[in-house]
Design a protein around this nucleic acid. Structure first.
Lengths: 236, 236
DNA sequence: GATTATTTTTGACGGATCGTCAAAAAAATC
DNA sequence: GATTTTTTTGACGATCCGTCAAAAATAATC
């Protein structure tokens, strides 16, 4: 840490100050609210200096996403180490995913903006690779749990159905659900009181559908959940 | 149809010409590619006239989404009328959803753009209601099939688990999957050869997980699919 | 420590594009 | 055919992005 030249230190510090200032702009006013002149004003540097750090608006957004993405990896890592059977570890990962979107709802917004091709196109290949890598890390961890289940003979996937395909389904279900939850106007009419619980129920149903044992009717989901929240996440 | 005044006719015609010109702009160049001056150039009217039809860029995008949304309702309607048990009708709806995203991939892009709060905010409440209504129609149809299954005692949902909650899961799974599929860079590393088939398999697993009979191992999915494609969609 | 070379910062500027509005043109009415 | 109403026009103001030559700060050299 202390091996950095003072100049480099200043650069890094300024970089995070820029992001600090940019974050609430995007969060509160969305993509259009991110304004380079305003950033320059608020961090008390000229616009040119901001552009020395980030070559365009979009780079700032992806940098914000990267900041938060590491938090997800951490949460997944903790979940994957839960000492229990594969199925419960999978539940722990589900809990990590839920905790992530609840604790860092900003990330969701950044990701949504970055999903627009016209935005993503402008970001550097380098930062794109960081995001992809962080996502791949999470996917691998989930696939690892699936493999453990297979090894333990708790699960037998259909012919040609790779663990990654199962991860794809879980990923689709949860990310799709979170997308709906965060654009709430489509939710109220459905009368979903606790949408996160519904996601959990669907995840369990999906695993049951693949005959992953123990089947959800063989244990008390609430109990397991309490245990996970306490032991893995220290109750928040 | 012929009861319109010539002036009104011209207005409507011009409106669809504007959308015709705008569509490929958004599809090919994304949100940023939609340029009001270029539209004016291409439809050979002044910018002011364009603004008489659409009060801002964003209104054009939501109008494009509305154009396509009706196609989805049609497909869902056809699927819901498939003469078969509820479970196979649900499969037919899944097929309709798949056909929709394959036939009208543009819609997906429009929806993604409109999901950004900073974009949606600028659109009229009126058009937002149209979109919501169209989505609600589809959701109701799916919920109807779920209710039929319950009535036929093919399905018994857990206590407090409404048909709408099941729809929420199916909707999450498919829309989430399609979002991943259309941003393909996260797909290749997973080695998914036919992602749409994987979505179908997951849908079936989910229904199995809720114990919706007939269970997927009690019939030949491919056969049923062929039948649906032939009888409901005339093979494309 | 003075001078020169290099790096960093600055903010005025060009350019793109949005949305407006007063004036012009067209259509409707009398 | 004159007058009123509606529609169209495109020049214009405003915003905001990203650039770049000049200025300021820092480092290197003697």
């Amino acid at each position: 840490m202390e091996t950095l030249t003072p100049k480099k230190r200043e650069m890094l510090e300024r970089e995070s100050r820029i992001l600090e200032v940019a974050r609430p702009m995007v969060v509160r006013e969305g993509y259009h609210g991110l304004n380079m002149d305003r950033i320059a004003d608020e961090v008390q540097y000229s616009k040119g200096t901001i552009y020395n750090h980030f070559s365009c608006k979009e780079e700032i957004i992806i940098a914000l996403a990267i900041q938060t993405a590491s938090k997800r990896t951490e949460l997944f890592q903790r979940a994957a180490q839960f000492k229990s059977c594969a199925r419960f570890r999978m539940m722990a990962i589900g809990e990590a995913a839920e905790k992530f979107v609840r604790d860092y709802p900003d990330y969701f917004q950044f990701e949504q903006i970055l999903q627009l091709a016209s935005v993503r196109e402008k970001t550097s290949e380098k930062r794109q690779a960081v995001i992809r890598g962080s996502e791949m890390q999470c996917i691998s961890m989930v696939a690892g749990v699936v493999r453990d289940a297979i090894a333990a003979e708790d699960l037998e996937l259909p012919d040609g159905f790779s663990p990654e395909k199962l991860v794809f389904g879980l990923w689709s279900l949860t990310s799709g659900a979170y997308a709906i939850i965060f654009n709430s106007d489509s939710l109220e009419p459905l009368g979903l009181d606790d949408p996160f619980q519904t996601v959990r129920q669907h995840t369990e149903a999906l695993l049951d559908g693949f005959n992953w044992t123990p089947h959800s009717n063989a244990y008390d989901s609430d109990k397991v959940l309490q245990k996970i929240r306490k032991e893995v996440f220290n109750n928040e």
